[in-house]
Design a protein around this nucleic acid. Sequence first.
DNA 1: CTCCGTGCCTGTGAGC
DNA 2: TGCTCACAGGCACGGA
Length: 275
Amino acid sequence: MPELPEVECIKNDLENLVTRKRIEKVKLLNTGLLRGITSNEFCRRVCGKDIEKIERRGKYLLFFLSGDYLLEIHLRMTGHFLYYQNPVKPDKYSRAVFFFNDGSQLHFQDARRFGTFRIWNKKELQKIKPYLLGPEPLNDEFNFAAFQQILHRKPNSGVKSFLLDQGNIAGMGNIYTDESLFRAGIHPARKIKSLSQEEEKKLFQAIKETLGEGVTFGGTSIVNFRDLSGSKGAFQEMLKVYRREKKPCPHCGEKIARLKVAGRSTYYCPSCQPL
DNA sequence: CTCCGTGCCTGTGAGC
DNA sequence: TGCTCACAGGCACGGA
């Protein structure tokens, strides 16, 4: 379940490995991943183009190609890339293979087939979903004042639902919301309007720190996340509450509890994060 | 406005 | 040991 830190690590790997390469050919092994385009048209717009630039917005990856188009990729739950210097046969989870001019390959693998590819014209950048999300939480422009302004737009929202909504802040999923709320000492079901100024500040710092550490540690590998060489991240070792039900809270020793919030399994410490 | 359920998928692992 | 089945959750969509 790649969230901002995992996608950021993937973006950094991709930048090093495939920018400035020419896509000679694409083999689609599962056309269901294409949104709003046929496989023939997809290949026409991608084949023969250079990858000029790769960006991340929230959990989206954007491949800017030479010519008119860019490729938007969302990994969803189990999508990941594997890079090979020399040709390798696709396996049963390979959904797409990019063949580059230097003989290297990029395989898009996705066991659960939730991942999506979409093509956009560069002229319509202002209309594309990844640019309509909330701010990037790790950018310097995302400061406390900006955070407060966004928070106060949704006073009646539950704080966890708020953090999961990509239109508020881009890039947080279930792992990093639970970890940020724990770090801030805030119960996931609290309403935004019930937060004190001090709690808002703590939450702001917790988001920055948790996501920043996630990137530093190379992401969280619970089930599927791997970098482009197939190696795991290390942030799963740092998790304080996520998937730690009944284990002791690292602060107070109380048992970590689990409940459903915003339709997701939510982990928290009842003593450090009172309602 | 805000929340909730459903569908999309299939590997994992708890429990019998 | 082997089987079943709940569970995992990002996003879009429809409805309360």
